[in-house]
């Protein structure tokens, strides 16, 4: 199991990036009243065939090709199922991947969320050619950020320019939802 939910976020995103995604939607919802943590990942990468889906979600399934499959998806599925939640993955070749995983917030084995603010910044800055849409909802408070909006403003100034990185850091630091 990963030590933080944010590590799962990094890992699932890394899969989307290796599948050639250039737009990745990540949403995280924490709702204490419903005792629910829900995470959704949607990308526009090359997607997965049915066989590939079986391979990444069933650790006992193997094929003769021996092609390497990352551990990110089985790890997330394992954490969700261990922590009283659910996991689903839908995909078609050429149509990206949609992953939805939930967790019971009060489950003793649920890893802490981790530093979401930092995760958002490293994903944006470390992948300047990829667009991200982040939504974080915590008990009714909502934060959202779409890098396409940022890039519309900065034009040909790259998103990893030191001044833009400083802006993003301050912008997120001021959001009380991350405290």
């Amino acid at each position: 199991m990963m030590e933080e939910i944010c590590a799962h976020i990094m890992d699932i995103t890394a899969n989307a990036l290796s599948a050639g995604a250039h737009y990745i939607v990540i949403s995280i919802e924490e709702d204490h009243e419903r005792n629910l943590l829900a995470t959704r990942f949607n990308d526009n990468g090359k997607g997965m065939s049915e066989e590939m889906i079986r391979r990444v979600t069933d650790p006992f399934f193997s094929t003769k090709t021996g092609k390497k499959v990352g551990l990110g998806i089985p790890l997330l599925k394992g954490t969700a199922e261990t922590c009283g939640g659910t996991f689903s993955l839908t995909s078609k070749l050429g149509e990206g991947v949609d992953i939805f995983a939930t967790f019971a917030l009060d489950h003793p084995d649920l890893p802490p969320l981790g530093n979401l603010k930092e995760t958002i910044i490293v994903l944006i800055v470390g992948n300047p050619d990829v667009d991200f849409s982040f939504t974080y909802t915590k008990d009714g408070n909502k934060f959202s950020l779409d890098t396409r909006e940022i890039k519309d403003i900065i034009g040909d100034m790259p998103v990893n320019h030191p001044e833009v990185v400083k802006f993003l850091t301050k912008f997120l630091d001021e959001k009380t939802i991350f405290v």
């Binding site: 990963m2 944010c6 590590a7 990094m10 990352g70 910044i121 990893n160 030191p162 990185v165």
Partner: peptide, 23 residues
């Protein structure tokens, strides 16, 4: 930033580089 890199703390390393370079 593969699974093992992330588990070993690669995000913190990436963040440190991002911070140092912009500062």
């Amino acid at each position: 930033m593969g699974t093992s890199g992330i588990a070993a703390g690669a995000r913190e390393v990436l963040k440190t580089f991002v911070e140092e370079i912009s500062n």
